[in-house]
C-alpha cells in the first residue's frame, strides 16, 4: 500500500474471500522451505549445512562426518525455548491486563500512564527507552501528549474484550477456521481499542497475546514483514504494491504495514498454526496448543530474521519524525 498523509486502511480487495485464498495459497507454497530451515538451524541458532560447508572452506578445514539431532528433537526444543522466552516477562503483562487492577487505576489514570504503562509494561518501556532509534522520537512525543484517560480506557477495553473472548473460545477452538470473520476479531481494529500513536496494532496485539497466547496472535513488525516474504513480495490483486508493506513515495521509505488489520492478520496466523501443527504431527511431536501463537510468533520472527539485511536496508531510511511504531 502507498501512504498518503493519514491513510489507515488497506484496499478493500484484501478482505475478499478469493483474494485471501490466493494469499494463503502462496504462503502455503513457501511455508515448507522456511520450515525446513527453521528446523535445520534450530530457529536460527545453528548454521545450515551449506553455511557450515562455506565456513569450513573459508577457514580451510574439512568437515568430518556428523551425527545430527533428529528433526523431532529439534522441533521440540524450539518450542520449549520459545515458550520459555515468552513466559519470562509474562507476569508483568498479566498484572496490567487484570480487571481488578484496571478498575483501581480508573481513579488514577495519570499514575496508570506514567508508572504502570511507562515503566512496567515491557514493550512500551523498551520502546520509550530506545533513544538510539530516532524514528521512535515521534512515539515518545505521542506518548507524552496522550490523554491518560484514553490510554486507560483502551487497555480496559482490550482486557474486557479478552475476557469475553475467552468465554466464546471453547466453542471454536477445535474448529478449523475458514474465514477471518469466524475469528470475530474485527472490533479490535476500531477506535475503541486503539490509542493512535501509542497503542496501535502492534502493541495492542502484544498485550492480548501475552494474556492469552492460545487466542491472540502477536502482530509484530517482524510478523508483517514475514508475511510479505512468505508471499514472495508479490502483488496479489492490490493496486498499490503488497498489502503487507507501506511505501511512502514522498519520503521514499518502505516499512511493514503497521496499519494492517488485526482480524486479517489473525486469519493468516491461524493458518500458519495449522501448518506448524501438521508438521508436528508428521514429526510425532506434541504441539502445545495453549501456546500456539508463541510458536507461530517464533516461526514468523525466524522468517523475518532470514531477511534481516533487507529489512534493515528498508528501515535505515526512516528518519526522525517518521512514524515507525504503534500508530
Amino acid at each position: 500500500m502507498f501512504v498518503g498523509s493519514e491513510e489507515r486502511t488497506i484496499e478493500e480487495v484484501c478482505y475478499e474471500k478469493e483474494h485471501i485464498e490466493k494469499v494463503l495459497k502462496v504462503i502455503k507454497e513457501n511455508f515448507d522451505k522456511y520450515f525446513t530451515k527453521f528446523i535445520e538451524t534450530e530457529n536460527g541458532i545453528v548454521m545450515s549445512k551449506e553455511e557450515i560447508d562455506e565456513i569450513a572452506n573459508d577457514i580451510g578445514i574439512r568437515v568430518l562426518k556428523t551425527n545430527e539431532n533428529s528433526p523431532s528433537e529439534k522441533y521440540r526444543k524450539i518450542m520449549i525455548e520459545a515458550i520459555q522466552e515468552f513466559e519470562k516477562d509474562r507476569e508483568k503483562y498479566l498484572k496490567i491486563m487484570n480487571k481488578e487492577y484496571l478498575d483501581e487505576y480508573e481513579e488514577e489514570v495519570a499514575f496508570f500512564k506514567n508508572k504502570v504503562l511507562k515503566n512496567e509494561c515491557p514493550i512500551i518501556h523498551s520502546t520509550l527507552q530506545n533513544i538510539t532509534a530516532k524514528a521512535l522520537d515521534k512515539y515518545r512525543m505521542d506518548f507524552n501528549l496522550a490523554d491518560p484517560a484514553i490510554l486507560h480506557k483502551v487497555v480496559t477495553n482490550l482486557n474486557n474484550f479478552s475476557i469475553e473472548y475467552e468465554n466464546k473460545y471453547d466453542t471454536y477452538k477445535d474448529k478449523t477456521i475458514s474465514s477471518y470473520e469466524e475469528l470475530e476479531l474485527e472490533l479490535l481494529d476500531t477506535d475503541d481499542y486503539t490509542a493512535y500513536g501509542v497503542i496501535g496494532g502492534g502493541i495492542k496485539s502484544h498485550l492480548l497475546y501475552k494474556r492469552r497466547p492460545q487466542m491472540f496472535a502477536n502482530r509484530s513488525r517482524d510478523a508483517i514483514w514475514a508475511l510479505w516474504f512468505l508471499t514472495e513480495k508479490i502483488i496479489i490483486d492490490t493496486k498499490m504494491d503488497s498489502e503487507f508493506i507501506m511505501i511512502d513515495t514522498k519520503k521514499t521509505t518502505t516499512q511493514q504495514n503497521y496499519f494492517y488489520p488485526y482480524c486479517l492478520f489473525s486469519f493468516y496466523a491461524i493458518n500458519i498454526y495449522y501448518l506448524l501443527k501438521e508438521k508436528a504431527n508428521e514429526l510425532e511431536v506434541e504441539f502445545p496448543d495453549d501456546y500456539k501463537y508463541v510458536i507461530v510468533d517464533a516461526f514468523l520472527s525466524f522468517v523475518a530474521e532470514r531477511h534481516r539485511l533487507e529489512i534493515d536496508l528498508f528501515t535505515s531510511n526512516i528518519k526522525e519524525g517518521d512514524r515507525y511504531y504503534g500508530a
Binding site: 541458532i45 545453528v46 548454521m47 551425527n67 539431532n69
Partner: peptide, 14 residues
C-alpha cells in the same frame, strides 16, 4: 564464522 563453526561442533553432541 569461527563462533558458528564452534556451535556446530557442540551441537553434534559428541
Amino acid at each position: 564464522e569461527l563462533f558458528n563453526y564452534f556451535v556446530y561442533i557442540l551441537k553434534k553432541k559428541l
